[in-house]
Design a protein around this nucleic acid. Structure first.
Lengths: 218, 218
DNA sequence: AGTTCAAAAATTATCTATAATTTTGTGGCG
DNA sequence: CGCCACAAAATTATAGATAATTTTTGAACT
């Protein structure tokens, strides 16, 4: 599903590397050697370099000239930053999307929420969660905005998958339902406010108990 | 100033191309042939391709697989979209920056406003305008947010330089002064609201009289 | 023993040349 | 007039080589 056949090789490599980084298979701070990656994919270094540029634009790796690229680390501040940006942009998207929301779309969104209820692992839940957000935001018809939100969502998924949270169900799904209720009642501003708090909360909760440490390895 | 000596060749090429696109030297829709560009810069196609990926991430070009890249066009809807995104993100940045704003910074911002008053061409005014926004937003200390705002500002500059506006001074500078007054009085929310309207207005005004046409060439 | 400096190794960044795939343009033919 | 085949051009990808820079290694010296 993720790797389309008509994509360019650089795009395919970047998608696979992105999946690994998001899933935590490659730790933050680890260096990605271009020859090493090229050899693994049976490719030359040229498409690998292009893949690096794509990942850099997404914020998944950082590149220092003549020093190669390394997996981006994430501090508490960066997690908060991504959450705040998501909140600001998703609220904008929701306000613009609201007039175009149909009953059918809201029903689909409710189904996505139920799918989140039934999820037994983080991956499945995250899939349903992303689906919910996309369903209610896409009708804004602002491609640049949606792309930006999607990249931020990807960054959020990194934090989610790093294994610090066991209670990802209850509060989130309650928020989802409150958003849908408000939207059905035509109370767009209420929905936007709940959405803002909902997204911000994702970036704030876990560090009350456990602290996320960046990888020591260089 | 724009091209640092220790930058990689791909970065230098992308910066020069970005300047041309922003200045309107290359029209929207025009195809950028990699060999053509490579020859002009006396480089090979490898760094040129990497430069394309950077420009793509900034939204200055669009890339279609196996078809090369072309300068991104901008429709009325896209201009609005960029303005709305800027408004949302700059408001967020201002709220976070407000507690760290010092009198010295606000004085600098006022000086930037005065520089905008004295500007005789669009380029000089845009430089002062960007300086003003950066001064009051940078203290938020959120690098990802600031980078996103900067890219959106670049996109705004494209519209500004496309020659549709002769009256770029009066209302903007009035807004700048209102923002500074509110900030000095500690009225952050007021400042944020003026900033939001101010940025949104940039994307709304000109099309009441003259309409921007995309390049006809395909 | 620890620090500093220099040589060596590894890696990045680039170029040249070439092949493969795809798009595009042209011309003929039904 | 439309459609198919063929040719030309451009993008995408590979391979090997070279220059420049960073990192590592090792040895001399205090």
């Amino acid at each position: 599903m993720t790797t389309a056949k008509d994509d360019t090789l650089a795009v395919r490599i970047s998608k696979i590397l992105a999946e690994r980084i998001i899933a935590g298979a490659i730790a933050p701070g680890v260096r990605l050697g271009q020859d090493h990656i090229a050899e693994e994919f049976g490719a030359s270094h040229v498409p690998v370099r292009e893949a690096f540029r794509r990942l850099e634009a997404q914020g998944l790796v950082v590149s220092e000239p003549r020093r190669g690229v390394r997996v981006a680390g994430f501090t508490v501040e960066e997690v908060r930053e991504v959450a705040e940006m998501r909140a600001a942009l998703e609220v904008l998207a929701l306000r613009q999307a609201a007039p175009h929301l149909t009953k059918a779309l809201l029903d689909q969104a409710e189904e996505a929420t139920r799918a989140g209820d039934k999820a037994t692992d983080v991956q499945a839940w995250e899939l349903a969660n992303r689906h919910f957000h996309r369903l209610i935001l896409t009708p804004c018809a602002m491609p640049r905005l949606l792309k930006a939100i999607d990249d931020l969502h990807t960054a959020s998924a990194r934090f989610l998958f790093s294994g610090w949270r066991a209670e990802w169900e209850a509060p989130t799904d309650r928020d989802h339902r409150a958003i849908l209720t408000a939207l059905r009642a035509g109370q767009v501003e209420t929905a936007a406010q709940v959405l803002a708090r909902h997204v911000q909360a994702i970036g704030q909760k876990p560090w009350q108990t456990s602290r996320l440490k960046p990888a020591a390895r260089g």
